[in-house]
Write a protein that binds this DNA or RNA. Structure first.
Lengths: 148, 148
DNA sequence: GTTAGTGCAAAGAATTTGCAAATAG
DNA sequence: CTATTTGCAAATTCTTTGCACTAAC
């Protein structure tokens, strides 16, 4: 978390952008909830709950900025709103998500098992893979165990 | 294509839904453009161009129906609108998409190389994979060859 | 002080909904 | 004939934008 915040300050400086209250706040919330997948609205609501008066427009603008600076990743599910999560600096690519079709939980998955696939894509399609977004849909352990 | 249309008629009958002009038309457009990735608006525009007077609401309702009947798949890109494509009845899962970050082309990829990954997910997370959505981002062959 | 960032309210885009009229079975 | 579907326009949802005001550097 420290690392990302420092990283953020550097990236802002490099682009002559300003380190403002709302920006610090929003990055902080994401850093404290790296396991969650928050929408702009979630973050806005969280801020208001903690008496941080930040407009929703600023939340959107900050999330767009953080995504451009490659500090967060957007996840696009089927419900029409984007969810964000802090990027793991150790990751080469984005990590994968398991989405339970019963409880709608989103489970993070760190394994990077797509290297072989990416190599084959390069050979067969001449396509040079830079990033990937993998979502696996199914039934999670807990839901699978319930005998409804 | 014949197969899908028949399949469609059966599925409608099974659910006491009606086979209407707009529904046939829309499925037909998708069947004739299985390699494309059309938005509701694309389809609506196509229909109007061919003097089929169908309201945009009907297009949305029909696409939702076709998706529920598992005849088409929705692809959720970063531009905020859903694109649809006829499902290939031969496929176990959805196929993958390569998205070029330069020309924004979407390339279909039939290989199903995720079986090993899915097996490991099942072992490690107890998660039973039913479907997947894989998008690989990068630079396509043509864009990679351009020396701009 | 200058430039970038913010909040607000209004605009925009994609999609959904309510309802009376139309149509398939 | 009856239940489903349609078209239209209005509503909704998520997101973006314009602009005067504020805050970083």
């Amino acid at each position: 978390m420290e690392k990302q915040v420092n990283n953020f300050e550097d990236k802002l400086r490099d682009n002559s952008l300003k380190l403002t209250g709302p920006r610090q706040c929003i990055l902080n919330y994401l850093a404290c909830n790296r396991d969650k997948h928050l929408t702009a609205d979630d973050i806005h609501r969280l801020l208001l709950q903690n008496d941080e008066k930040v407009g929703i427009a600023t939340v959107y603008r900050t999330l767009a900025l953080l995504e451009k600076l490659e500090l967060i990743n957007g996840i696009y599910l089927e419900d029409g709103c984007v969810r964000y999560q802090l990027m793991d600096t150790k990751e080469k690519h984005e990590h994968h998500h398991l989405i339970c079709e019963k409880c709608n939980r989103i489970i993070d998955m760190q394994d990077d098992l797509l290297e072989r696939l990416e190599r084959q894509v390069n050979e067969k399609y001449g396509f040079c893979v830079k990033n990937h977004k993998v979502k696996l849909y199914g039934i999670c352990k807990e839901c699978g165990q319930m005998k409804d």
